[in-house]
Design a protein around this nucleic acid. Structure first.
Length: 467
RNA sequence: GCCCCCAUCGUCUAGUGGCCUAGGACACCACCCUUUCAAGGUGGCGGCACGGGUUCGAAUCCCGUUGGGGGUGCCA
């Protein structure tokens, strides 16, 4: 019999898997790994009206993207809450027989009417002693005892709830199906969960669940409620308002390691002055006791910064491989793409992007038949007095001779000196003629890769356009 | 309304009574480097919400105020 801790992550499949859930999962995962424990995935699919199988798959895929999946021996699941319904109902009846629960036939409207009369919020325990036997239209409610319930929380310490502030909550709906509070506890007992690490929004539920644990004759788990993630308005991240879907970040070319690292620094920090650290260091150092108590803003700018760091840390081959999916649906005709040419440019692109999805726009001028000319860039650079001259003279200069970025650069440098200008100035019209933009990868390397014929063609096209 | 949680630069954090003239990171600004843009380097801006205690000494402990957040479903 092992006493290794059992952590669990219990999302409900009611929408895109979002970054808040990802962080909670990561916290559980890190803890399970360090303690030699287990990470149990349980899909809480008891809300039939909002559930959908594709969301379930989305959760599994997203967790796998974060490195949490069944290929690891410390991963267990997924379990599906809906499959345990019989267990939940049995537990409910046990609570009824023990006197911990009672039936009630009041509708929501009736409860509201009563609370209006008494001036008190919520359900007032009207059916507590009416001795209803259950049946259609009746819900089973938990009989909240007198006294206090103290939740021992690993991040917050002891939290004391006066039981009189907790109403007799519903265990079984009038259609007989179990509610979250009950199902969640029964499953945790069944799966021998020893540690519950979840978002702070569940803290008010905890005394209720702890009472169920007690009434069912089991010792409650070690609780830990971590702060929620918020948006700029400091409101809890919402699927409707905020960009929170993990999938979306993946599509944009955020690297999983960057996402993992960033998420872990929300509410916690590794020792030392560096936030960008290997996963193993996080596993070694992460402690619930060190988690911050206040909500953290999910800052995309900082995520991007982390991602840029991770992108630059990739080997050239890793970078090229990582770009592949983003190159697949690029704006150029597929047959014009060349992996070899991309490989030549890739190292120059690597330090210039923050997310992988920016890569196509950095190299599209190579693979497009004609560069897409940015009109602002055009007017800004082609209006100068020397524009036509530099274009014409440069085209002449490079029409013969060696073809590499050094000679290509030397040619322009000579012209620039002869005309008493700066290279920063004179390269601009050429860059726009070649790439359509004022910014991009280093010019002469780009030209080298483009090739002499195409370069000359674009230079002359620009000269013609200026007129 | 009621219950609960929280409070260090704009943001994420370090800090657990003296190493704090409060450290790092993102963002921002300046300079350097430089073929554009990045990257890199150097520097700068900027914070302990407020008021009372406790203490020789408080960002750190206590109380209050204010301000935020979460919950308050026959959702999870």
């Amino acid at each position: 019999m092992s006493d290794a801790p059992r952590y669990r992550f219990a999302p409900s499949p009611t929408g895109f898997f979002h970054v808040g859930g990802a962080r909670t999962a990561l916290y559980n995962w890190a803890l399970a790994l360090r303690t030699g424990g287990t990470f149990v995935l349980r899909i809480e699919d008891t809300d039939e009206s909002r559930n959908s199988p594709e969301w379930t798959q989305g959760i599994i895929d997203a967790l796998s993207w974060l490195g949490i999946d069944s290929t690891h021996p410390q991963f267990e699941g997924p379990y599906f809450q809906s499959q345990n319904a019989a267990l939940h109902v049995a537990a409910a009846h046990k609570l009824f027989e023990q006197g911990n629960a009672y039936w009630c036939d009041l509708t929501a409207e009736q409860i509201q009417a009563r609370s209006k009369e008494t001036g008190k919020q919520g359900y007032d325990g009207y059916s507590r002693d009416r001795g209803l036997a259950g049946g259609p239209g009746q819900v089973l409610r938990f009989r909240v005892p007198e006294g206090h319930t103290v939740v021992q929380d690993l991040v917050r310490g002891a939290v004391d709830f006066a039981n009189e502030t907790i109403e007799d909550f519903v265990l079984l709906r009038s259609n007989g199906s179990p509610m979250f509070l009950l199902a969640n506890v029964v499953d945790d007992i069944e799966m021998k969960v020893s540690n519950v690490v979840r978002a702070e929004e569940h803290l008010p539920n905890t005394p209720k669940q702890q009472m169920i644990w007690d009434a069912l004759g089991h010792t409650p788990p070690a609780w830990a409620h971590v702060p929620v993630l918020v948006n700029e308005q400091r409101k809890k991240l919402s699927k409707r308002r905020d960009k929170v879907a993990l999938e979306q970040y993946r599509e944009e070319g955020i690297l999983p390691d960057a996402m993992i690292n960033y998420l872990m620094t929300l509410g916690w920090a590794p020792a030392g002055d560096t936030e960008i650290v290997p996963w193993q260091k996080i596993v070694d150092e992460f402690r619930l006791e060190d988690v911050n108590h206040s909500p953290a803003f999910f800052d995309i700018k900082k995520l991007n910064s982390f991602n840029g760091d991770y992108v630059r840390a990739m080997s050239p081959d890793e970078f090229i491989a990582g770009c592949a999916p983003h190159l697949a649906d690029a704006p150029w005709p597929a047959e014009r793409f060349s992996a070899d040419i991309f490989a030549k440019l890739a190292p120059l692109v690597q330090t210039r992007v923050v997310t992988l999805s920016e890569v196509p726009a950095m190299v599209d001028f190579i693979f497009l038949e004609d560069p897409v000319i940015d009109e602002d860039a055009w007017t800004k650079t082609m209006g100068s007095e020397f524009a036509v001259n530099v274009l014409r003279d440069y085209a002449d200069a490079i029409s013969a001779g060696e073809w590499n970025h050094d000679t290509l650069k030397n040619s322009l440098e000579s012209w620039t000196e002869a005309n008493e200008l700066k290279l920063g100035k004179t390269q601009a019209p050429i860059r726009v003629a070649i790439t359509g933009r004022t910014v991009g990868p280093p010019l002469f390397e780009s030209i080298e890769v483009l090739g002499r014929d195409e370069t000359l063609r674009r230079l002359h096209a620009a000269i013609t356009r200026i007129g």
